[in-house]
């Protein structure tokens, strides 16, 4: 995330880490798993239909592989969309 921000000329320290510690917090936040990356509240890889909860999040890279983190290109595109 920080690499992607720096690549777009943005402050890599502009990332705020938030711990979601309880099921209630997850429900309130609409948190569907760790890690969830949001830019101005928008998920970089929206997970339609996923239930809120304290779980590991499954991402799919653009080549179809399962990953614990979003595809870097998805992050870069979300940043570019946010700064349009």
């Amino acid at each position: 995330m920080r690499e992607a921000l720096a690549a777009e000329g943005l402050d890599p320290d502009g990332v705020v880490l938030r711990e979601v510690g309880t099921d209630g917090d997850a429900e309130r936040e609409g948190f569907v798993g760790s890690p969830t990356i949001r830019i101005d509240g928008a998920d970089v890889a929206p997970a339609a239909g996923e239930p809120a909860g304290l779980t590991c999040r499954i991402y799919h890279l653009r080549d179809g592989r399962v990953s614990p983190v979003p595809d870097p290109q998805d992050i870069r595109e979300a940043i570019r969309e946010a700064i349009k």
């Binding site: 779980t55 590991c56 999040r57 499954i58 991402y59 592989r65 399962v66 990953s67 614990p68």
Partner: peptide, 8 residues
């Protein structure tokens, strides 16, 4: 069933 590392 639900861990991305396990699935990978």
């Amino acid at each position: 069933n639900h861990c991305p590392y396990a699935l990978a």
